[in-house]
């Protein structure tokens, strides 16, 4: 139960941060494409719960939750969205190119499927140097249609690399549903299994199942030094890119949307914790702490300066 409260806090924190970004996005001060994780927060929380600092992570365009769950610095994240010099890449990368090396979040990249090989290369380095730790590679269902996905899994299986491939299957690539992109009935986890990885599939919004599967998969990599893929079924609540809800466009069936809203990970956690007599007080304190932290991060970002244009030529090779 103690674990679940911790999981709840992490999930709630990411939700509140993403909602704060959404609320302030229309002020037009965060001037970069921003892909929110609302609805999908539990997956990286359940994964990161079993990671250490020696474990490294790579992610994709929708990376805020992955960065935060791994321990990425919130103040640097918000400053990055504002393009300020105090951002995690001093404004060079924006929302889609995050990095916090201190916590082992190596990087997120913007091109679909493009960070899967990088994560695999990190795992190769870990194997070659007999380093402690494994690598986590986050991506969505769309990325599994890229050649880089197949090529990377093939190599990881060939070399028995210590890597956890995490596919957040939210069923949509922008507005395109899985049904127009992949053959009906084919499973990403089974496909990965045929490529040579141990694979898992699980409801990524169900706290108990998501945690159990994450633990089993990560333990497998630690004990056997072989790659795994976990397919987490989940759902994004808002538009592909930006702060708004977009179900007025009718690209998703209303019934489907409702089913997934009913299966919201945060609600699921609250339901699971409801019987705990201390939960209400815990929740109240959590919300207050998180709100305060968020306010401080936004204040810091707003008051920070942009980098100097004269520094634009820094880090060009000699």
């Amino acid at each position: 139960m103690a674990d679940l409260k911790h999981i709840y806090f992490q999930t709630l924190r990411i939700r509140k941060i993403e909602e704060a970004i959404a609320a302030k996005y229309s002020e037009q001060k965060m001037r970069c494409p921003t892909h929110l994780s609302i609805g999908q927060e539990l997956v990286p929380v359940a994964v990161s719960h079993f990671l250490t600092h020696a474990d490294k992570a790579y992610s994709s365009h929708r990376a805020h939750a992955h960065y935060l769950a791994k321990g990425g610095d919130l103040v640097k994240l918000i400053a990055e969205l504002y393009g300020k010099v105090s951002g995690c890449t001093a404004g060079r990368g924006g929302s889609m190119h995050l990095s916090d090396l201190e916590c082992g979040f190596i990087a997120s990249t913007a091109i679909v499927g493009n960070s899967i090989p990088l994560a695999t290369g990190n795992a190769l380095h870990q194997q070659l140097t007999r380093a402690e730790g494994l690598t986590v590679s986050y991506f969505g269902d769309g990325a599994t249609e890229e050649g880089a996905f197949y090529e990377s899994l093939n190599f990881a299986a060939l070399k028995s690399l210590p890597i956890v491939y995490v596919c957040e299957n939210n069923q949509y690539s922008v507005y395109s549903p899985l049904s127009v992109r992949q053959p009906t009935g084919r499973s990403i986890s089974k496909l990965s299994n045929e490529i040579g990885l141990k694979s898992f599939s699980v409801d990524g919004n169900n706290p108990t199942q998501a945690l159990q599967t994450s633990q089993a998969a990560i333990n497998y990599v630690r004990h056997h030094g072989k790659p795994v893929l976990i397919e987490y079924f989940t759902y994004r609540h808002r538009e592909h890119c930006g702060p708004h809800f977009d179900d007025d466009l009718n690209y998703r069936e209303q019934e489907e949307v409702q089913t997934w809203l009913d299966n919201d990970p945060l609600n699921n956690l609250e339901k699971a914790l409801d019987k705990d007599p201390e939960f209400k007080a815990f929740q109240k304190l959590a919300i207050s702490d998180i709100n305060q932290e968020i306010e401080q991060a936004f204040t810091a970002a707003e008051s920070a300066s942009f980098g100097s244009i004269e520094d634009n030529e820094r880090f060009i090779y000699d």
Binding site: I116, P117, L118, G121, L124, H125, G147, E151, S152
Partner: peptide, 26 residues
């Protein structure tokens, strides 16, 4: 064989794997 090896016919991902390993310090 650990340091010098043949590779899959997968130019794109293998380049990315090279980059990922290089970023990590290889």
């Amino acid at each position: 064989e650990q340091r010098v090896f043949d590779m899959p016919t997968a130019e794109n991902a293998m380049t990315g794997i090279g980059i990922g390993a290089a970023v990590a310090g290889t």
